[in-house]
């Protein structure tokens, strides 16, 4: 675990530190859920991984240590990460997970915990391209000459924006002129 994850660790309540059977049951249940999330559909595969990981966890668990859930999941993830890194030459676990999925090699997962991995089935996954190679260009706006009429209008607008009272006066003046014009036209 790196420094970031250490700072993020959430401790289990102290009454669970004793690691009774219910905690190991929860750990087993959680690992089973995680394996399902990894799309390991076979009961047999899940059961074999569960036993494998639970045995390792019991061996290294000590009173006052990490909760069984934390331990069991950490063992599973680290084993999977290690094996994937070896199989894919990919140290980044997230990237390795992605390639595992793309390769459709989820059925290989049980083998990561036993004899070994068939590397060849994972190799095509290395073709994943998230985006093409960047080839940066400078795209910068070129000024447009707006012409004399627009320049006068622009400076007028800018002047109006700077003087809110004057702006209000102009607005009401136009409104009054409009009403006077209507009055005159309709006579």
């Amino acid at each position: 675990m790196d420094a970031h994850s250490c700072s993020l660790t959430l401790s289990a309540p102290s009454n669970l530190i004793g690691a009774d059977q219910s905690e190991w049951d929860e750990a087993a249940s959680r690992l089973d859920a995680l394996l399902r999330a990894y799309r390991v559909k076979s009961y047999e595969h899940r059961a074999s991984i569960l036993l494998n990981v639970l045995n390792k966890a019991r061996e290294i668990h000590y009173p006052g240590g990490p909760a069984p859930v934390e331990l069991v999941v950490a063992i599973f993830l680290s084993t999977l990460g290690f094996q994937l890194a070896a199989a894919l030459d990919e140290k980044d676990f997230a990237r390795a997970r992605l390639e595992l999925w793309v390769a459709g090699a989820v059925s290989e997962i049980p083998q990561f915990f036993s004899a070994g991995v068939r590397r060849d089935s994972l190799i095509p996954a290395k073709r994943i391209a998230i985006g093409p190679q960047l080839e940066l260009t400078a795209m910068v706006p070129k000024k447009i000459q707006l012409g004399t009429v627009t320049s006068i209008a622009r400076s007028t607008f800018q002047e109006l924006e700077r003087r809110p009272v004057f702006r209000g006066f102009i607005f009401w003046l136009f409104l009054m002129l409009f009403l006077v014009a209507i009055f005159w036209i309709t006579r």
Binding site: A12, P13, V73, A74, A94
Partner: peptide, 19 residues
């Protein structure tokens, strides 16, 4: 990146009572 990576691990590693 780091937050998403760590949250994924932590959510599975944390006992239900602490989540």
């Amino acid at each position: 990146y780091e937050s998403m990576d760590q949250l994924h691990k932590k959510v599975w590693q944390t006992p239900s009572t602490a989540l």
